[in-house]
Nucleic acid binder design. Structure first.
Length: 223
DNA sequence: TAGGCCATCTGGTCCT
DNA sequence: AGGACCAGATGGCCTA
């Protein structure tokens, strides 16, 4: 817990340089979470069209068709093109049909697994306090994980502060006496970075980022 | 145009 | 044997 104390509220939400600003730079107004990027129009191969969203029916239902598309039509994303030649002329190309169908089955399984993983990440995003606005692009995978980790650390610290406060009160101290700053979680606004007001001088969209200016593209863009 | 992010394919490894 | 997990490779899309 010692290291937790060293982290301010903002620090919890801060991401490493490589993941902070860049990760949120996609929060542009253009596509938004469900914009061109969010829809994964032609990202990967096959006819994958909606990323992790609505996967269940999709990944399980389109399996067979998926496989054929991905294999025959040449997968746009992924190693499709390169490996298609390899497949047709190489390993799988020479192997019997059973081998190929096995490969397709494995591919479909792996695809499904990744969709499930993305679903889980979406679930994680949904509980992380960041802007869930349609005008903001969704968090990248790495940003989601890092933010979640920081959020957990923050919650742990808040809980610890509350416990100390309760212990302090239970000791029969005079309530009129001011609480030491270290025992007063409410005196440490940084501990509750999500309950603040709109950031001063920030466009309206940024109000969703209250307490997390580092996550706000507009704030970062400000001169 | 470069860099970031992503989906997919693939082969290998481990487990049941 | 079959499935789950993993990491490397590849190419597409998007933003700065």
């Amino acid at each position: 817990m010692a290291e937790l104390k060293s982290l301010g509220g903002e620090a919890y939400l801060a991401l490493p340089p490589g993941y902070g600003p860049s990760a949120f730079a996609y929060g542009g107004v253009r596509g938004g979470a469900e914009g061109p990027r969010g829809a994964y129009p032609a990202g990967g191969g096959a006819d994958f069209h909606s990323g992790a969203l609505g996967k269940s029916a999709e990944s399980s239902g389109e399996q067979s068709g998926d496989e054929e598309d991905g294999f025959e039509a040449g997968v746009k994303g992924g190693a499709g093109f390169e490996r298609e030649g390899k497949l047709k002329g190489g390993a799988l190309g020479k192997k019997p049909k059973e081998q190929r169908s096995l490969r397709l089955s494995i591919n479909a399984r792996e695809r499904r697994r990744m969709h499930d993983l993305n679903d889980a990440l979406d679930g994680l995003r949904s509980v992380i306090p960041y802007a869930h606005s349609p005008s903001v692009r969704k968090l990248s995978k790495i940003a989601t994980l890092l933010l979640a980790k920081n959020y957990i650390l923050m919650q742990a610290q808040a809980l610890e502060e509350m416990r100390r406060l309760v212990a302090y009160l239970n000791q029969g101290q005079a309530l009129s006496a001011p609480l030491p700053a270290t025992l007063n979680p409410f005196a440490q606004s940084a501990v509750y970075p999500f309950g603040g007001a709109a950031l001063p001088g920030c466009p309206e969209k940024c109000t969703a980022f209250t307490g997390a200016a580092s996550l706000c593209k507009h704030c970062n863009d400000k001169p």
